[in-house]
Design a protein around this nucleic acid. Structure first.
Length: 507
RNA sequence: GGCGCAUUCGUCUAGAGGCCCAGGACGCCUCCCUUUCAAGGAGGAGAUCAGGGGUUCGAAUCCCCUAUGCGCUACCA
């Protein structure tokens, strides 16, 4: 077994622990995905924990939104705030006494201390240090307060915070599964971070560490910004006598311009907008997996099951990747055209059609639905997002097409000739042969006949087909003419041709 | 300012001392197909492997330095 599971006994347990401060952005989904994939790969367990320890930044509904985003791409958890589990509760705001107990223990052991330094004093000190181009103060002046001073201060009843009391010297070394290397930090450069705030809530550092241990997390996978605080977490594990988990810091996804990581301030990064636009969860999963992980030198399209089987931290890139929407779009159209069956595509596009005002009462399998499905087949190769379906299919459902007459009168053909073409086509389709024709049959269908007409009129074949195209679709771009006519049906096609003829004659 | 991490085509990546004067994908360009637009097929441009030093018979791959980028440096996560 690889390094990823070294020294581990029992099942791999991973977690995703978002903070409910807004929507889940795609970088967050990717981090959650890697965590989930590691558990999947080793037949382990994955859980969801909500880190709502900052009351000021709490956003109503964010938790629900994040869970929806995760479910959308196919990430499921066996334990979590919504489903419970053996280590419930999974919301940190409901676990306050636990953190307080450990914070007190650390103070009692001398590994943490109480501080009454006010936030105003702290910022003043930091600003002064910054102005002098000096590093900010790492220690708090209460660090070395005498028991008498502390007791006296405590008697005043003023609120305090608890800070970690990091060693004066020495260093921490740990191995990172993504960096594939050992990372060293000197204690001297580390802050005595706050682990318990004055409102009684823990900070991330205490809460995450305590919960990861209590919940049996074997592999802590998280975004790279946590790398720098890992030594503090390790100090907590050590002070509490706990075996630390393995760490894997996954690189951030950078904004398309490469300037900075994706964040909640980038509206384009919100996961939910991808489903509302019509990205397929499988495509999103596939794309995101490849953003920082690869299987080999050429495989790109993989199912979730394949990725789960093939995932490996060894192949996770240690450097950040930029968000590439073009590639996601390509991936999505690959799934639309080469992975989904037509039935599946029709089923999934239906809500978007209904949203666009079509097929309100359609029931899968009924006549209208079948018509829609046939039309969808014609346009799917130019469908990149399901949300584009209503526009791409609009002329299949319009009662009367609206278009500029100029569109009918193309180059290289006169108005009279256009009228002739339309009239000829109408008669052609009206003839008894229509029922027998497979319109798209080039040899025996109307195509051969119309090509003959073009020769007769002395115009290009394209000049003959274009007015017909505009007549039946209202556009100069469409799928194959005869396939389209076939789906539209004789009645609708003839009606549109006659309308176009009137329009030309009315000129 | 300090500390940490990273650095292969524009972008995502393959590459773990000779198979690499660097392979694949997206995007871009050309051609083919063709009634339009796509899709598809075939090609092409595009990376002195961030730069500089080493180590070695031999380095994209190992070591060092520099540069640049990103991250952290909150009683936010």
């Amino acid at each position: 077994m690889s390094e990823e599971k070294h020294e581990m006994s029992g099942p791999v347990r991973t977690r995703f622990a978002p903070s409910p401060t807004g929507f889940l952005h795609v970088g967050g989904v990717r981090t959650a995905m890697f965590s989930w994939l590691l558990a999947q790969r080793f037949g382990g367990e994955f859980l969801l924990r909500v880190e709502d320890t900052d009351q000021k930044r709490f956003v109503e509904g964010a938790e629900q939104n994040m869970m929806e985003s995760l479910r959308w791409v196919g990430i499921a958890w066996a334990e979590g705030p919504d489903v419970g589990g053996p280590h419930a509760p999974y919301r940190q705001s409901e676990r306050l006494p636990i953190y307080q107990r450990y914070a007190e223990q650390l103070v009692a052991q001398g590994d943490a201390y109480q501080s009454w330094t006010s936030p105003a004093e702290l910022t003043a000190e930091r600003e002064a240090a910054a102005a002098a181009h000096q590093p900010p103060p790492r220690r708090d002046r209460w660090r070395n307060a005498s028991p008498e001073q502390v007791a006296a201060q405590e008697a005043t009843g003023q609120r305090f915070v608890i800070r970690l009391k990091l060693p004066e010297e020495g260093s921490v070394v740990f191995y990172d599964l993504v960096k594939k290397d050992t990372i060293t930090f000197d204690y001297s450069g580390q802050d005595d971070i706050v682990i318990l705030k004055s409102d009684g809530f823990p900070t991330y550092h205490l809460a995450a560490t305590v919960d990861d241990h209590l919940m049996g997390i074997t592999h802590v996978m998280r975004a790279e910004e946590w790398l720098a605080s890992t030594p503090k977490h390790l100090f907590i594990y050590q002070s509490l006598g706990w075996q630390p988990p393995a760490f894997a810091h996954v690189p951030n996804i950078l904004r398309p311009d490469g300037r900075g990581k994706m964040s909640k301030r980038d509206g384009d990064a919100s996961t939910e907008q991808f489903w509302t636009k019509g990205y397929l969860p499988e495509a999103m999963f596939n794309y995101l997996a490849l953003q920082g992980w690869s299987y080999d030198d050429h495989t790109e399209i993989m199912t979730v099951a394949e990725i789960s089987q093939r995932f490996s931290l060894e192949r996770v890139q240690p450097s950040p990747a930029r968000w590439n929407l073009e590639k996601l779009n390509w991936m999505n159209s690959q799934y639309i055209n080469h992975v989904l069956t037509l039935d599946d595509l029709a089923r999934r596009s239906l809500p978007f059609m209904q949203n666009g005002g079509y097929l309100k009462d359609a029931v899968e399998g009924d006549e209208e639905y079948l018509y829609y499905r046939a039309a969808l087949e014609l346009i799917k190769d130019r469908l990149k997002l399901l949300g584009e379906a209503p526009d791409l299919l609009s002329y299949f459902f319009a009662d009367r097409l609206q278009y500029d007459t100029a569109l009918l009168l193309g180059k290289g053909i006169t108005a009279e000739q256009v009228a002739t073409v339309l009239d000829h086509t109408i008669h052609l389709l009206q003839s008894d042969q229509y029922a027998a024709w497979h319109l798209s049959d080039r040899e025996t269908g109307p195509e051969a006949n119309l090509r003959g007409l073009a020769a007769e009129l002395g115009v290009k074949v394209g000049s003959v087909f274009m007015p017909i195209r505009v007549a039946i679709t209202g556009r100069s771009q469409s799928p194959g003419l005869f396939e389209t006519a076939e789906v539209l049906g004789k009645e609708r096609t003839l009606f549109r041709l006659r309308e176009a003829l009137h329009q030309v004659q009315g000129q």
